[in-house]
Amino acid sequence: MMWLLRLTIFALIIFLIYSIIKYILNPKRKLELAHEQKRYYFLDYQENVHKNFFLTYKGALFEGEKYLGTTDHAFEVVSIFIWPRNTAELKGMVKEDFQFIENKIHEHYHNAKIDWKSPVKEFMEKSRFPKDRF
């Protein structure tokens, strides 16, 4: 009876250690932590094209939707739509921040064309074509 109790306690300790390690290494937890600390973090499952990726930068959380297409040599992600999850978090961001995000995405998806959804799309278009001032 005593050895059964020891075996049960040992199994419980192993299970707790396993659960703690899984929690620490969880990529979604790392994304949330980077979001709170206003750091850059890119969470993506590149082997699964159907799953959206998440990116956090300067306290703003973005979601990107990938579309598979053909290039000259292979099937790859050729189009990405990206949008902020909460537009209020965009406060203080400048054009260079969005260009940084685009460059980081291009590091993972070289052939992808990146399209922003509103309101970033309008901001980027407005900043590309400044109007003359009188």
Score class of each variant (00 low, 15 high):
M124I: 15
V120Q: 06
P130V: 01
E107V: 00
F98I: 09
W83L: 08
G92W: 03
A88L: 10
K121A: 03
F15Y: 11
H50V: 02
F62G: 02
V49F: 09
L7F: 08
Y40V: 01
K22R: 13
S118W: 00
S118N: 09
I114E: 04
E65A: 05
H108D: 07
G92Y: 09
F98L: 08
K131F: 08
K58T: 01
H108L: 03
N26G: 04
F134L: 15
L43S: 06
E32G: 03
E47H: 11
E47W: 01
E125Q: 14
N52A: 11
K95E: 14
R128T: 11
L31G: 01
F42I: 06
A112C: 05
Q37Y: 03
E122Y: 10
L4W: 05
D72H: 06
F123L: 13
L5T: 05
L43P: 08
K28W: 13
L25N: 15
A11M: 12
I101T: 07
K66H: 05
E96I: 02
N48P: 03
D132L: 12
T70Q: 11
D115E: 15
Y109L: 01
L31C: 08
F100E: 13
N52Q: 08
T71P: 11
S127I: 02
F53S: 06
I20Q: 12
P27D: 04
I101C: 12
H106C: 00
R133S: 14
D97F: 02
V94T: 14
L5K: 10
Y23R: 07
L43W: 04
F15C: 15
L5G: 12
A11R: 08
T87S: 12
A34D: 09
L5P: 01
Q46F: 00
L61E: 05
W3A: 10
K66L: 09
F100C: 07
A88N: 15
K117G: 09
I114N: 04
A88R: 14
M1G: 14
N86P: 04
L61Q: 03
